[in-house]
Design a binder for these strands. Structure first.
Lengths: 191, 191
DNA sequence: ATTGCCTATGCAACTCGTTGCATAGGAGGA
DNA sequence: TCCTCCTATGCAACGAGTTGCATAGGCAAT
């Protein structure tokens, strides 16, 4: 489990409350590590008990009080140790790929609108990434180490979305061809 | 949860026992859907109880008996229904990306060997994909619907690995530059 | 002979992740 | 005025996923 470490990185980059972390996880960080507010609150309490992070109650006007967390030295040490451990293999769950193979036993045409929706959301995400790059990294020749590393991760996201868009176009072409060929006859007759 | 559906697709493509499924999930299918034998056995029993699949005891010589499962009509109907449901958003867990951002608060050089190992394993996987493509799809002009769909998923895997390799090279260049720049001074002094 | 690995299935305990719900004040619109 | 949404935190229950272990016969190598 590395939710602790993702939270630590986020708090090192910028202290914040559980609620703020949950929103970060919905936005930038959530692109490579998702978490709900429930997970975050639970892990924050554990991390505070372990001394990894320090909490400070902050009163707000017009809003409920919040507990602002920041990374403590033991947390930083734990993060450095984790950095040196080998990454465990990622558990992949690519539902769309399963559906594409499943389409062979049903109607390939039934998947087209679904893949199109997918394509639109990836196109929107790519646009958001590119916009964020313009905003956060206007001058690529003047980045410090932290920004360099943030930017190389962002470049990964951008390239992933570009690749995915091209692949989804490939998938759509294939599905449309099969839906055309299969019109008027049972798919099983040809398999 | 879509493990049921991944298993159904696999059984439609080829009937098999729990053990055989577990091995398929370690190989081809496991590239876009992972599962341990424990999950598979549990889900198989539930699916059999629900009538989605049928089991047949098969005696073997020199080996323990096995239960060979095959997809039943209710399972096929359930799969067709699932195909028409919208895919739930994928939960991404990109541990390496977290580590790269974490490196800003420690020594970027400490990550280099880890990223190199990663790069090697992706290069090996790409080679395996390309080899499998040669073996399973020797004549791209003579594919049936099922093979067409299997191939478009494989193309996605190939493109993903190519993109990942290029990105990891980008990451390595960045890490090596930062490790060079940071030599002899504390990283924090520059951040 | 013993050790270790492979096939094949399964139990039990645990942790992680998800979902529904609860509280509670403030802002904004119908 | 009521309804809904937003901030902010949290409990409880459930389902999914992981880990360790167990059984049990056969094969191959030391």
């Amino acid at each position: 489990m590395a939710l602790e470490h993702a939270i630590l990185v986020s708090l090192l980059e910028q202290p914040g409350s559980g609620y703020e972390l949950a929103r970060r996880f919905d936005r930038s960080i959530g692109r490579f590590w998702t978490a709900t507010h429930q997970q975050i609150y639970r892990v924050l309490r554990r991390m505070e008990a372990d001394g990894w992070i320090a909490a400070e109650e902050v009163a707000q006007d017009g809003r409920p009080d919040k507990k602002v967390y920041s990374a403590a030295e033991p947390g930083r040490v734990a993060l450095a140790g984790w950095l040196r451990e080998p990454v465990e293999p990622e558990t992949v769950r690519h539902e769309l790929a399963v559906k594409i193979r499943a389409a062979a036993f049903d109607d390939p045409g039934a998947l087209i609108s679904e893949v199109e929706r997918h394509r639109e959301s990836h196109a929107a995400l790519l646009a958001r990434y590119l916009h964020g790059e313009q905003r956060d990294f206007p001058d690529l020749s003047a980045l410090d180490a932290r920004q360099d590393l943030q930017h190389v991760v962002l470049r990964g996201g951008i390239e992933y979305e570009r690749m995915t868009l091209a692949w989804l176009d490939d998938v759509l072409t294939t599905l449309r061809r099969l839906a055309d060929e299969g019109r008027g006859q049972d798919l099983d007759d040809r398999v």
